[in-house]
Design a protein around this nucleic acid. Sequence first.
DNA 1: CAAATGACAAATATTAATATTTGTCATTTG
DNA 2: CAAATGACAAATATTAATATTTGTCATTTG
Lengths: 229, 229
Amino acid sequence: MSFVILCVNYCTGGEKQPVCCPSMNKKTSILSKSEILDAAEKTLRRFGPDKTSVTDVAKELGISHGTIYRHYPSKEKLREAVTERWLDEKIIFPLTEIAEMETNDPIHHLKNYLFKLIELKQTYAKYDPEMFKMYAEVTEHSAELIDEHVNHIIEQMNVLIHQGIERHLIQNIEIRTLARSIFYATSRFHHPAHAYEWENESIKKEIEDVWTLITYGFFKSYQEKDDCK
Amino acid sequence: MSFVILCVNYCTGGEKQPVCCPSMNKKTSILSKSEILDAAEKTLRRFGPDKTSVTDVAKELGISHGTIYRHYPSKEKLREAVTERWLDEKIIFPLTEIAEMETNDPIHHLKNYLFKLIELKQTYAKYDPEMFKMYAEVTEHSAELIDEHVNHIIEQMNVLIHQGIERHLIQNIEIRTLARSIFYATSRFHHPAHAYEWENESIKKEIEDVWTLITYGFFKSYQEKDDCK
DNA sequence: CAAATGACAAATATTAATATTTGTCATTTG
DNA sequence: CAAATGACAAATATTAATATTTGTCATTTG
């Protein structure tokens, strides 16, 4: 009984744990991936991504550094794992909460979602600078990680856009293309390469103005020009 | 007579020359700013922006490095001057040619202008990598230089937008805001921080898709929904 | 006498010697 | 016997000594 419960406690978060069920007698001595990630995150925040060694992380855990290599095949993979968890927790999780809210104003819902993405990125750039730097560094090298992250966001935007189309508020064009274009057209406001431009207060108005542009476009439609009014 | 002509020859390009008119007997010995910039550009292309010293530039010219400091107060100012001239020649000049063309399709004209900007940036990133790197480095430090460059482009876009509004093709909203928003919404395609993402072939479709988005917007207007058709 | 020089100090970059870190794997531990 | 260890070589980073570069300015040059 307690066997099962313990296993559930240990194996949360979808991690592929080192087999934790046979011989459960040593529960505290079994090192989990998330314990390593906790220690890595703590160490990264202390020393910064450029000064943190695998040895430092091992020291934090009071173990041999060789042990970490039994869980992550390289320093780079460890950095990616830390970044992936950080992105999931700090960016994807709060965004998912917004995405799943009920609404009868899909346009506002979409704006809410996108603006939250921007706010989160800009907040963490400022208040969790070491981890944000880590994220910026890792995603510049790992196309895989950034692709997964971006696709996750575009996927959620797809759903919101779909709701807008159903209610005849959004033009019925290729959804995925639209989601991607909205994401890219706002790169300046959420891409880490632009972080140094976020200090300026004018950034808030710029975001609103770009949002207005992509909402209505600059083109005066034929309806407005000829048929109507 | 030949005095005046020589002066004109020497003082082209709007440079503030070291007074070249009194005592013209030594015409070849007078060092012009553009000669320094030529040598700097040549040296920068050879050694790259991180390995080029003021001494290297002086060597290229066969002069003492102290002389360069009589024309530019610091290495950084020299780098800025090289970058500014490069931008004017490689980006602003060809853009101005397009901007000044006559057209009866202002939307196409605007697209043409913006796509040329993107094409030029992407071409020089690939085929003049040292100077492009120089530009990327300098603009990250000098807000002044990048502001001037960006404002120049936005100014030219203003004119094109104005033509579109006159012909009732572009919505009559605040022109400057619109120009800036179009510029920012396409940052991914012309901002040097994104240069490493330009390798991917998919970038061409992304540009077209973002252009379509900012042209028409994603919002289904009331005209389309209710009044018309 | 305007323009260039080159000697100089301070700042910065390079080099070479030294130390640490990364990643592996045979051995140890519980 | 699964998990951890720690000794080890190769790669990378740090340090300290050395060399170059930056920027100034009194002196020289034409």
